[in-house]
Simulated scan of single mutants.
Amino acid sequence: MTVLMPIEDILKPELRALSCPNHRPYPPGAIRLDLNESPFPPSPKVIRAVVEACYEANRYPIEAELELESKIAEYVGLESSNIVIGNGSDCLIHAVMDATIRPGDTILMPFPSFQVFAIAVTRNGGNVKYVRLKPDKFKLPPDVVIDEARNCKAIVIVNPNNPTGNIVMSPNEVEEILSSFNGLVIVDEAYYEYSRVTVVNLVSDFDNLVVLRTFSKAFCMAGLRVGYAVTSKVMARALRKVRHEFPVSTVSLRAAIAALDDLEYMRRIVSYIERERKKLYNELKAISGVTPFPSCTNFILFKASRRDLARLLAKRNIFIRDFSKCMDGNYFRVSIGRSDENRIFLKTLREILES
């Protein structure tokens, strides 16, 4: 009888430290305020482009990818050779770590922050060192980062940070780090269109800078999965070597091109979300037992008096993100929805906290 090797012994040992995504369908009529999605569909121009792109879906997306690289380069003020497109920015996070992290390497990043970076590092046998953000302002002091990053391969800065919603470091402070750190500096600007804070202009001066952005948030295209990296030409070539050859479909590429041709639509969405965010912040601030934190994104982090708040809201078909397991206190993140969704959330929140 042949004795087969257990499948666990075939798999990479690094996978044991990772959890498997466990997505479940939302109930009918759910108010989805947990994933920082846009509550609105993409631009009508995007929807038309999606339909039309189906007629070229029999071909690999060579021309569409090159055209989108050119469009993004124009949008950020650089050259196409500085742009790498991916299947969402998550794909590019993994590509950056696949290209740079060897077993035993360490990256430095804030905590709490976007954990896909930690997953990508762990998958490559690397280690993660955290700088804990203090809950008074959730700032990332550059002197602390420089000191803690000794012997680190890379520094990750999510700016604005997820889940805290604030700018953790100014562009000048990022430049200070770039000037004194020999490793890679990765700045995640997924919420740039809301914050208007960027270090893209520094890419021409620093070969060790990678800026990541996405079409998922302000462009209302989370389901189409398009992200991009802005980096030096040397780093861009390296990323193209490790990512898939055709990582994004023709449909999604044409959608992103159309989105950049309709920036006015994106700006109207951003303005709407900003108005709703201000109203939601003020309403949360007025509720006893709730402490919201200022945000320049499409979500708000808040602290509440009840630890089981997310579970109780879910029972009423309202979904928010619970961070109480990883933060010291009852912290929750709520995405900014449509005006009617925000009103229902606030009404239900008050009822739960008053019960």
Rank of each mutant, 00 (worst) to 15 (best):
K12R: 11
K12S: 15
E14R: 02
A17L: 06
P21S: 12
H23E: 06
G29V: 12
A30K: 04
L35A: 14
P39Y: 07
P44F: 01
V50D: 02
A53Q: 12
C54L: 13
Y55H: 14
A57C: 05
R59F: 10
Y60P: 03
A64G: 05
E65A: 08
E65C: 06
S70W: 09
E74K: 15
L78C: 14
E79M: 12
S80Q: 10
N82Q: 04
N87C: 01
V96W: 01
D98R: 01
T106R: 08
M109A: 00
P110M: 05
F111P: 00
P112I: 09
F117H: 15
F117C: 06
A118W: 02
A118T: 03
V121T: 12
G125I: 02
N127P: 04
P135R: 15
P142W: 06
D143F: 03
N159E: 06
N159Y: 04
T164F: 00
M169A: 01
S170K: 10
P171F: 04
P171K: 08
E173F: 04
V174C: 06
E176P: 00
E176G: 09
N182S: 08
N182P: 09
L184S: 05
I186R: 06
E189W: 05
Y192C: 11
R196Q: 06
V203K: 08
F206Q: 11
D207P: 13
N208F: 07
L209R: 03
V210C: 00
K217H: 15
A222I: 10
V226Y: 01
Y228K: 11
V230C: 09
V234E: 14
R237M: 11
L239C: 04
K241H: 13
F246I: 05
P247G: 04
V248Q: 14
S252K: 03
R254H: 12
I257L: 04
I257T: 15
A259R: 09
D262Q: 09
L263G: 15
Y272D: 13
I273S: 01
R275Q: 13
K285S: 15
S288D: 15
G289K: 11
P292V: 14
P294K: 07
I300F: 12
L309C: 00
R311H: 02
R311M: 07
K315F: 03
I320S: 13
D322N: 14
F323C: 10
M327R: 12
M327F: 08
M327A: 10
G329N: 07
V334G: 03
S335H: 02
R338W: 00
E341N: 12
R350L: 14
L353H: 02
